[in-house]
Deep mutational scan, measured.
Amino acid sequence: MEVVDPQQLGMFTEGELMSVGMDTFIHRIDSTEVIYQPRRKRAKLIGKYLMGDLLGEGSYGKVKEVLDSETLCRRAVKILKKKKLRRIPNGEANVKKEIQLLRRLRHKNVIQLVDVLYNEEKQKMYMVMEYCVCGMQEMLDSVPEKRFPVCQAHGYFCQLIDGLEYLHSQGIVHKDIKPGNLLLTTGGTLKISDLGVAEALHPFAADDTCRTSQGSPAFQPPEIANGLDTFSGFKVDIWSAGVTLYNITTGLYPFEGDNIYKLFENIGKGSYAIPGDCGPPLSDLLKGMLEYEPAKRFSIRQIRQHSWFRKKHPPAEAPVPIPPSPDTKDRWRSMTVVPYLEDLHGADEDEDLFDIEDDIIYTQDFTVPGQVPEEEASHNGQRRGLPKAVCMNGTEAAQLSTKSRAEGRAPNPARKACSASSKIRRLSACKQQ
Rank of each mutant, 00 (worst) to 15 (best):
K269S: 11
E120G: 09
A318F: 14
L182W: 01
V4F: 05
E121G: 08
V77G: 01
P281W: 02
T250G: 04
D162L: 06
G180F: 04
M139D: 00
G270S: 12
M139W: 09
D229H: 02
A225V: 09
M18R: 04
L167V: 07
L183T: 07
I267M: 04
S419N: 13
W308R: 00
Y118G: 09
Y49V: 05
D284L: 05
S421R: 12
N94C: 07
L386H: 05
Q100T: 10
K84T: 03
R104I: 09
F231M: 00
N94D: 10
D208E: 11
R301Y: 14
H168L: 01
S283R: 09
S421Y: 15
T24I: 06
K329E: 10
D365S: 13
K416C: 07
R40H: 07
P149I: 01
R333A: 09
R304Y: 00
D348G: 09
C132L: 04
T189G: 05
I260T: 10
L228F: 10
T71G: 12
P6R: 09
G270V: 09
Y246W: 07
K146A: 09
A76Y: 01
K388N: 13
N259A: 00
K78F: 01
V320H: 14
P221C: 04
L54M: 07
E375Y: 13
A347G: 07
Y292F: 06
H154W: 04
D277L: 05
T186W: 04
L190P: 01
K81P: 06
I267L: 03
Y166P: 06
K41P: 14
H174W: 06
I303Q: 14
L282W: 02
P321H: 08
L85A: 15
A406I: 14
L344A: 13
L353C: 08
S283N: 11
M125R: 02
T24L: 08
G180L: 06
V3S: 10
D358S: 12
M51A: 12
V77W: 04
D330N: 12
S232R: 11
P324C: 10
S428K: 02
T71E: 11
D277R: 10
Y246D: 00
R28W: 08
A410V: 10
E407G: 03
D162F: 07
P294A: 11
K78N: 01
L140T: 01
V143A: 10
R103H: 14
E374C: 13
T395Y: 12
G56L: 02
S401F: 12
R28L: 03
N393R: 06
G268I: 15
K235W: 13
L263Q: 01
K78Y: 00
G370E: 11
L117G: 04
R425T: 13
K96H: 10
V173Y: 06
I35E: 15
G10F: 14
G242D: 00
E291G: 05
F255E: 04
I79S: 04
V20P: 11
P373H: 12
D115N: 15
Q214F: 06
D330R: 12
P411V: 15
T24S: 07
P222S: 07
E120S: 11
L427Y: 04
V320L: 03
K262N: 10
Y60I: 09
L400R: 11
G268S: 14
K48Y: 11
C134G: 03
V372D: 13
H154V: 01
K62Q: 14
T367K: 02
P280H: 08
A397L: 09
L427S: 13
L290C: 06
P373F: 09
R415E: 12
K78C: 01
G276C: 08
F148I: 10
R39I: 07
C210F: 06
C278K: 14
G257L: 04
T336K: 13
E14W: 02
F234S: 07
K388L: 04
I274V: 03
K97N: 08
C418T: 14
D141M: 08
L9N: 15
S404Y: 05
T71D: 12
I360V: 12
N247F: 04
E120V: 07
E145W: 11
K82P: 15
D355R: 11
L290D: 00
D327L: 14
M127V: 05
F204H: 15
V66M: 00
Q37G: 07
H174L: 01
K108H: 09
E165V: 02
F264E: 14
A273N: 10
Y36M: 05
F219W: 12
V128C: 07
A414C: 14
Y60C: 02
H313Y: 01
R331W: 12
V337P: 14
D330H: 05
D176M: 00
T186H: 02
K41D: 11
P314T: 13
A76L: 00
E351D: 05
D208M: 15
K122T: 15
Y261V: 09
Q170S: 05
D350C: 13
L184Q: 05
V116N: 05
P387H: 12
L341Q: 14
P222W: 03
N181I: 00
K269W: 03
E65W: 10
T186F: 10
Q364F: 09
T212A: 11
H313C: 09
M139S: 04
I322A: 13
R310Y: 13
I267A: 06
A397V: 04
R333H: 06
S421F: 07
Q100V: 11
I88G: 03
P280K: 15
A406G: 10
M335Y: 10
I192W: 01
N94V: 03
I224R: 06
G268V: 03
I361S: 12
E65Y: 06
N90A: 07
L263I: 14
P411R: 05
D358V: 12
L140E: 00
G135K: 15
Y156I: 06
Y36C: 07
K82Q: 15
H174K: 01
K178W: 02
G227M: 15
C151G: 03
A218G: 04
S401H: 12
G288F: 02
V338L: 11
I172P: 00
R405N: 10
R310C: 06
P413D: 14
E351G: 10
T367C: 11
G188A: 05
D229V: 02
G135T: 15
N181H: 01
P254Y: 01
V63G: 03
V63S: 09
A410W: 15
Q399N: 11
S213Y: 10
P294V: 10
